[in-house]
Design a protein around this nucleic acid. Structure first.
Lengths: 132, 132
DNA sequence: TGTGGCCTTCCACGGTAGAGGAAGGCTCCG
DNA sequence: CGGAGCCTTCCTCTACCGTGGAAGGCCACA
């Protein structure tokens, strides 16, 4: 198992080099060893961490939430309970967000009905558009 | 009907003075007449425009979309047809957005099931968290 | 020796809709 | 006359997640 440079690590994780530097800068990746030329040198274990970040992002967690989870793991604890709590929170957030969008959709549909059935010549210019 | 200063116009429309200046700066409000002291002087008709902006925002239109509608009206045409098209577009956007969030919710729920039923002591530290 | 392809740093930008605040001018009321 | 409460402009900041580019260093191959 050899160490890899940032480009290879990024490609292996399906990310860009920019993203890796960004994660390091924002505490999702620990500062990594540099070679004599200043290049970052990623050990093979780093790939698992990158893939965890990938999976977490796909699950809809924010980088801040992912960082919290990583910090718990880095402190030597199993983050499972925290992960469960985070996911529970996310479920309620998502439910609320979906409910809001659904309500907005209903009101947009109403406006659309009015606007598509209305007569433009009946529209009062002073109101800009009577159907909104 | 007298002209009003920005604070009164904003209050009447349920907005802040900041918002009115912002709208003017971004082309939703035409440059308004200034008094001798440099203060903006809003005619009574301006209120209808502000209320239209309010209604449109409540309907979920972005400021850019509202600006387009206002420009059509300012060009002397009835924007109803454009409004209908805009709303139709918004309905499909909302439907897609809602579908995405619903799918994300389903996957988050699955992860949550796994994480809340799993055994933390079984979690492989190298994977950070097995349930994500 | 040159050229292409990595790597480094830092700075700016995007989109959304304003909020917050500083520095200074105006106006009204007591 | 003094102070409260308006108004003006201009600049910075918010949250999110990077992307794009410039200026320069390093390395391998032909």
């Amino acid at each position: 198992m050899r160490t890899v440079r940032i480009g290879e690590a990024a490609a292996a994780a399906g990310m860009t080099t920019k993203a890796l530097r960004f994660y390091e800068q924002h505490g999702l990746l620990p500062p990594v060893h540099r070679g004599s030329n200043g290049y970052r040198d990623y050990p093979p274990e780093a790939l698992a961490r990158l893939q965890f970040i990938r999976r977490s992002k796909a699950a809809g967690l924010s980088l801040a939430e992912i960082r919290n989870i990583l910090q718990i793991r880095d402190a030597g604890q199993a983050p499972c309970a925290h992960v469960a709590a985070q996911l529970a929170q996310q479920l309620t957030d998502l439910d609320q967000h979906i409910a809001e969008l659904t309500a907005l959709r209903a009101s947009a549909a109403e406006h659309y009905q009015a606007a598509s059935q209305g007569d433009p010549t009946q529209c009062d210019p002073a109101q800009i558009c009577s159907y909104l």
